[in-house]
Design a binder for these strands. Structure first.
Lengths: 263, 263
DNA sequence: CAGTGGTCTAGACCACTCA
DNA sequence: GAGTGGTCTAGACCACTGT
């Protein structure tokens, strides 16, 4: 790390710059521990709080992870998973025999796990109700919450949560309303059994910082936003039969749409 | 604001919680100025640095804007603009007579402005080259940089930047390579004149915190990520003829795709 | 100019991790 | 228990904004 550097910059920025370029140059490798805050303060002849300010800047830039009682570590960068708009195509499902989530992870040598953590009958939130043409004042939908994990052999980490809302008329009497275990295929086979074959998918995408709950649930590091996708499945009669809200760690996942453009 | 609150919480969190709920309850209205750091420190009997920590938390949550020399203000929330996948459809372009950007802003009563800030012949970045089937070691593309602004009557603010890369063979001899002023229609009319009518659009979406340059250029407030869309326009022969990288403030804009799903 | 946030200091004590 | 980050204090001075 270059400790001379410039003259005029503020001490906290000087330290941050030094550490940043050391990381960029690979002098501090991924996963490596930085010197302790006290050690850096000594070395630069500044107060510990000033070092903490520098570390905070790097942490917000997503360059380091600060771990209480252990130290500050250079953050490991992961390859981005790409989830496509072809997610719901029956051909895709049948060709690979895998759900798109499992297929994408397999391609990157990761082990997927999907867990359905709850199935409830509830009143839908306002934005979901609007898209389903339902009201918010009655328990008119089944809510299924799914957690998606990836494991690289060393550790397993959450990638996204998907919360699916299904009108009660669609789910009633089917495993959609009752069973957490739908096998390795996604929900879509079950919708077809109920007479709803998907013909259009609407996806509304936004990004924001996670809420504190999401940050801890998805174990989101500092300086990482979430992608939120509000997906609506529409059948051949133009009826919306399912809405899913995906909340995805933006450092692990992105989206990939390939769409025909009509004249 | 409720100053009693809980007992055990840390002082910085107590103050942050108090301010947060005052904002949520509307006791502190949008645009309103919070008490100064020194005033809050006095009122709560804590050090000014502790108040600053509380304000920093709120700022990172995107609830307040801190303005040097002026004060801390409750951030104004804006409605999200939605940019659709139908952006490139010729019908859409002709029906409205407006570019999709202008149409979406008009719908929300905002005044759009689009400015082309540079046209250069350059070597494409790696990801763009890959999608165009070009190489990165020759100035094989025209790079057009467009800034998109919105004005609500009070102030004008940047919404997104779009950087378009066009293979030299496509742009050569056309205004695509030379003119900043393409009129109110988007680029797509010009591509058609050159024999490239769009038939497919691929859009790769990701989210991340802005770089310091992006943060200042787009005037992005604290705690706001950017959406990055790498768009590839593909013609009826399956040839990519244009790649655009959109970088959008995630507190102002989102995406809205409506796609057919093939069996 | 007064008032605001921005940075820094030199300490103190607490909470967590690991040997 | 030694070492790490987490929080807090009570001051100081600087930089920016507005009157």
């Amino acid at each position: 790390m270059n400790e001379e550097d410039t003259g005029r910059r503020l001490p906290s920025r000087r330290v941050a710059d030094g550490l940043r370029s050391a990381i960029a140059a690979g002098e501090l490798a991924e996963g490596e521990k930085l010197p302790s805050e006290r050690a850096l303060a000594d070395r630069f002849g500044i107060a510990r709080n000033t070092v903490r300010e520098a570390v905070r800047l790097l942490s917000e830039e997503g360059l380091v992870d600060v771990r209480h009682g252990r130290g500050v570590f250079v953050r490991r960068r992961r390859r981005l998973l790409r989830f496509g708009g072809a997610r719901y195509s029956r051909t895709t499902r049948q060709e690979t025999g895998l759900s798109p989530y499992r297929a994408e992870l397999a391609e990157q040598g990761l082990t997927p796990r999907v867990e359905c953590t709850s199935i409830e009958r509830v009143a839908p939130p306002a934005d979901v109700a609007e898209r389903l043409g339902a009201t918010t004042d009655a328990p008119s939908v089944v809510r299924r919450e799914n957690w998606y994990f990836a494991s690289d052999g060393t550790e397993e980490y959450p990638v996204q949560v998907g919360v699916t809302y299904i009108p009660w008329e669609v789910a009633d009497g089917s495993v959609l309303a009752t069973s957490a275990d739908l096998g390795r295929e996604s929900l879509y086979g079950r919708f077809e059994e109920r007479g709803h074959r998907i013909s259009r998918s609407r996806e509304e995408v936004s990004a924001r910082m996670p809420t504190p709950q999401e940050a801890s649930g998805l174990r989101i590091p500092a300086g990482v936003p979430v992608l939120e996708v509000l997906h609506t499945g529409i059948d051949h009669n133009g009826l919306p039969f399912e809405v899913t809200r995906f909340t995805m760690r933006a450092d692990l996942g992105g989206l990939d749409y390939d769409m025909p453009i009509e004249d």
